[in-house]
Design a protein around this nucleic acid. Structure first.
Length: 642
DNA sequence: CGAGCGGTAAACAAGG
DNA sequence: CCCTTGTTTACCGCTC
């Protein structure tokens, strides 16, 4: 009835102001993270340096090209231009070339244009060997570099480019020859162009997306250095993120958080962190186990990187033959297509967009509601009782498809209550303010970057409605905590043995489970474009092991935390949140500043064997088992556990 | 068919 | 006065 129309209006109204305002602080920050990627200077000229040089040349060239275009020097007949015409806005052309700053360029040019410029000019550059000019333009290079990063941030902000992938991309760039690099840029620009077009066609409020992710993106970008070192498998830690450096010069400390896998404990300063490190991560079985896992992670990533690089080269080689053929890796953007595929964008050169039902439970569920729903609210209700409550371990689900949800405008197949709970439990203190919950939603799900009025209302509604959410007064206001007991209580035992459920679960978990997690882990470190068949290649025993563990991962982070202080699910709510531990810092910043990097992602999936044990004991929530269960296994009823 | 659940909408109040 | 936060009620659709 009126509901529909109402929702429609809501959907179209730019109601995202809240999110924007709350997160607006990040804005410009993305700018000059230059230090990271190229800052490390050694006397020697390594291949990496050379590649950087190439990059810079391309950037410089892009700038030159831009200037040329601005001054009307660009000849439309140029091959490169023909390939991907770049229209420079009038405003641009009217500007004096000398006055154009990278920032201005960024503002003037759309990301696709920028990318196109980069690629075109890079091609020109390389061909004409204009490298000799580079010294004269060193300053410009730096600017362009910043521009590039800003641009990437922009893209990420729009959800067009996954966070981690960016980091990986840089690694890849550094590992590839110039021509490859050039090609890569082409690939990216192509995708972005199309995706951009789609977005714009959709009339989506890009600003909305940008609102919350921006700072996160910035951080992610800044976090690419550690990642890079990680991917390279070198122990040498290149110049770390400047932030981290300043914050305290410990690799495991940054943004006020302990970066020990799965920890994320808040530490106000270095001293506190050191203390925490010594206390919580002393040399014990657990820590060593975590180290081992981390090593596996690194190993696996290295292997995967090699594979992906190889594949990428093959792809590029292939595409080079047929430049007209659009890059297949970009997934359909619309929310309809996504649910069909895997949470990890399944489309690839080899796998057309066939509705794979194998995927993680998400698929079945999300496609389920998106289709079964009669609501016309731009987005079907989350409605997904079965999977949510009994089947889909939200934690593992999120762990697996974190990247997917982050970038795809797909409604997560979880109830609000589940999501809220997860958000809260995932927080360091197991307590969040309403606004923090909002931020979590927007940060984790592209979907929740719009229709803010609707879902925020739903969040509040759920918080108030469900007993499992406990409001705790704080010095600085109120925070919400989870009463796990209540939460478990509200899961009726009715589900036991429901045929439907089992069916769902089986189909949901299917064989996709392991691979899904594997992909998820990789997704953390791979470009979305890397989501191709090879990702599905059976992981090594080690990786399997790791990933298997990784499954519990998010839950583990949660559970693990729980196990820290109090371990039993039967504990009182209070134990999940020491009531009066208030966060001091601006939460948005802190939250967003969390480097959502591969490292972080993988980190989550670090629960070691020991942790696994703990987890099982600690929180026999649904999260656990889907993850631990092999595909197609009968499911113990969740209710029976509690 | 009804109960229960989840999602959505909306009214309202309190506080900043 | 507006916005945020929080509570509450009502309704709808879905599943069981």
């Amino acid at each position: 009835m009126m509901v529909e129309s109402a929702s429609e209006t809501i959907r179209t109204t730019p109601s995202n102001q809240n999110g924007v305002s709350s997160l607006s602080s990040q804005s410009d920050g993305g700018g000059g993270r230059e230090g990271g990627s190229n800052g490390d200077t050694n006397g020697e000229i390594s291949p990496v340096d050379l590649l950087h040089l190439q990059q810079q040349q391309a950037l410089q060239a892009a700038r030159q090209f831009l200037l040329q275009q601005a001054s009307g020097l660009n000849s439309p007949g140029s091959n490169e231009v023909k390939q991907s015409p770049v229209q420079v806005p009038v405003s641009m052309a009217m500007m004096s070339p000398q006055m154009i700053t990278p920032q201005q360029m960024q503002q003037i040019l759309s990301p696709p244009q920028l990318q196109a410029l980069l690629q075109q000019q890079q091609a020109l550059m390389l061909q004409q060997q204009l490298g000799s000019k580079q010294l004269a333009f060193q300053q410009q290079l730096i600017q362009m570099q910043q521009l590039q990063q800003q641009h990437i941030l922009n893209l990420q902000r729009q959800g067009l480019v996954p966070l981690q992938p960016t980091a990986t991309m840089q690694s890849l760039q550094q590992a590839m020859c110039p021509s490859d690099l050039q090609q890569l840029w082409k690939e990216v620009s192509g995708v972005q162009s199309s995706e951009d077009a789609l977005k714009q066609a959709e009339g989506l409020d890009l600003s909305t997306n940008s609102s919350n992710s921006t700072s996160a993106f910035a951080k992610a970008a800044s976090a690419h250095i550690p990642l890079h070192s990680l991917v390279n498998g070198q122990s040498h830690t290149p110049k770390r993120d400047s932030h981290e450096e300043h914050a305290g010069s410990h690799p495991l400390y940054g943004h006020g958080e302990c970066k020990w896998p799965g920890c994320e404990a808040l530490c106000e300063d270095m001293g506190q962190f050191i203390k925490h490190l010594n206390n919580e991560h002393a040399l014990d079985d657990r820590s060593t186990a975590q180290c081992r896992v981390q090593m596996q992670v690194v190993q696996q990533l290295e292997i995967q990187l090699a594979k992906e690089s190889e594949r990428l080269q093959a792809m590029m080689a292939h595409l080079h033959m047929r430049p007209s053929e659009p890059k297949p890796f970009n997934q359909p953007r619309d929310s309809e297509a996504y649910p069909e595929g895997l949470p990890h964008p399944p489309t690839s050169a080899a796998t057309p967009i066939t509705p794979l039902r194998q995927g993680p439970s998400v698929i079945s569920s999300s496609s389920l509601h998106s289709h079964s729903h009669s609501h016309t609210h731009g987005v079907g209700p989350i409605r997904r009782r079965n999977s949510d409550k009994y089947c889909t371990p939200i934690a593992s689900e999120l762990a697996q498809n974190c990247e997917f949800y982050k970038n795809a405008d797909v409604r997560p197949p979880f109830t609000y209550a589940s999501l809220i709970r997860h958000a809260i439990l995932e927080s360091p203190d197991r307590q969040l303010t309403l606004n923090e919950i909002y931020n979590w939603f927007t940060r984790k799900f592209a979907y929740f970057r719009r229709n803010t009025a609707t879902w925020k209302n739903a969040v509040r509604h759920n918080l108030s409605l469900h007993k499992c959410f406990v409001r705790v007064e704080n010095v600085k206001g109120a925070v919400w905590t989870v009463d796990e007991v209540e939460y478990q209580k509200r899961r009726p035992p009715k589900m036991t043995g429901s045929p439907t459920l089992v069916k769902n679960m089986i189909s949901g978990l299917g064989f996709g489970s392991l691979n899904a997690s594997y992909q998820a882990a990789l997704a953390e470190s791979s470009l979305s474009l890397l989501n191709s068949p090879s990702l599905l290649t059976p992981p090594s025993a080690a990786s399997l092991n790791m990933l298997h563990v990784g499954h519990d991962d998010v839950s583990s982070t949660v559970e693990q935390v729980n196990s820290n202080g109090s371990c039993s699910p039967t504990l009182s709510p209070q134990q999940y949140s020491h009531p009066v531990h208030v966060k001091e810092e601006p939460t948005e910043v802190e939250e967003d500043s969390r480097p959502v990097s591969l490292l972080a992602g993988v980190t989550h999936s670090l629960p070691l064997p020991s942790d696994e044990r703990d987890l099982e004991e600690d929180l026999p929530t649904e999260e656990l088992w889907s993850t631990a269960l092999p595909p197609c296994v009968s499911f113990p009823t969740h209710g029976s556990e509690v």
